[in-house]
Design a protein around this nucleic acid. Structure first.
Length: 314
DNA sequence: CCCCAGCCCTGGCGGC
DNA sequence: TGCCGCCAGGGCTGGG
């Protein structure tokens, strides 16, 4: 289940292996993987044909390849287009030699212009088809700041324009997030997962960040004090940075990075998935407390009832 | 503004 | 042994 660190691993891989090369052929093998593309699979293929990949950019869990398309105006104020990708639950972007056997769930194949020492195919593989690709137009960012990591241009794919900056973005503003939270009538975990407030945090890292910051996910946001918000955001950033340093965390064996190496990292999580197991912080302090699981938005939340006390009903 | 249910989808797994 | 139903996940839509 790729979350932000895994997507960043993919982005940096694409920057190294795909940027500067031209797409010489695009083939959609399963139209469901391009269902969000306006105009259908044929148009998707046509839009990529001959395009030069000039950058690899990410915001939250969205990543995109900047395209210079032949026949369009030369680089300049014209925003251009991008190949936008979301990996969903099980998406992979793999650089492969064309002779490599097709993956069972191969959905899209892009042939790239030859480049010494680099594989010539970029493949999109996706078992569960929650992810997808589309070719989309770029629009200006509202704040005039760079659209994401990997580009200084103040531009974003149109679909990403409503997605907030993520915790690894140099322009992320924690104080502004606190101000919104304090005004908002909601709860902390729900807001952590709100991609319009901050992006890139999924269910796993939300639980890990809450555990690290000793906050309960049902805590009303309007009771948060600024230091608590900053502690929580810092914890979330820290969890993601550590995962990124390790090459991307995932305990889903489906996930592999852009070079095909598994991003699996067997570091034990502190909260997520640990129902009935001891809270490690409590154990270190000489207590035995068991991690609890609760239903949340058709998913699960894991927390320590001692370090993360359930807020009183108001 | 906020919340929730439902949908997209596959395959692993538990239960019978 | 096989079949069925449940579960996991993010993002989006539409309705309350």
């Amino acid at each position: 289940m790729p979350e932000l660190p895994e997507v960043e691993v993919v982005r940096s891989g694409l920057e190294r292996w795909a940027v500067g090369r031209r797409i010489t052929d695009a083939r959609v093998l399963d139209t469901r993987s391009v269902r969000r593309h306006d105009g259908g699979a044929g148009h998707f293929e046509q839009a990529l044909d001959g395009a030069l990949i000039s950058g690899a950019v990410r915001r939250g869990k969205y990543l995109w390849l900047l395209l210079d398309t032949p026949g369009s105006d030369a680089p300049g104020p014209f925003p251009g287009t991008a190949l936008l990708a979301h990996l969903g639950m099980s998406g992979q972007l793999l650089m492969e030699d064309p002779s490599a056997t097709d993956e069972k769930h191969l959905k899209v194949r892009l042939s790239l212009s030859p480049s010494p020492g680099k594989p010539d195919e970029l493949r999109f593989v996706d078992q569960r088809i929650f992810g997808g690709l589309s070719v989309t137009s770029m629009v200006p960012t509202l704040d005039g700041l760079p659209g994401g990591l990997g580009s200084e241009a103040p531009l974003l794919p149109q679909e990403v324009s409503g997605i907030a900056r993520d915790l690894l973005d140099p322009h992320f503003d924690p104080d502004a997030v606190h101000d919104v939270l304090h005004r908002r009538k909601s709860t902390v975990k729900r807001s952590l997962l709100d991609q319009n407030l901050l992006s890139g945090v999924g269910n796993i890292y939300a639980d890990e960040a809450l555990w690290a910051a000793r906050l309960h996910g049902e805590r009303p946001t309007n009771t948060l004090r600024r230091p608590e918000t900053l502690r929580l955001l810092e914890a979330a950033r820290d969890v993601m940075e550590r995962a990124l340093a390790a090459g991307g965390t995932s305990f889903d064996s489906l996930y592999v990075n852009v070079n095909g190496a598994s991003g699996y990292f067997s570091r034990s999580l502190n909260a997520y998935g640990r129902e009935g197991e001891p809270c490690l912080r409590c154990a270190a302090e000489g207590r035995q407390t068991l991690i609890r699981r609760a239903s949340f938005m058709n998913r699960s939340s894991y927390f320590c009832p001692k370090c993360q006390p359930v807020p009183r009903k108001r």
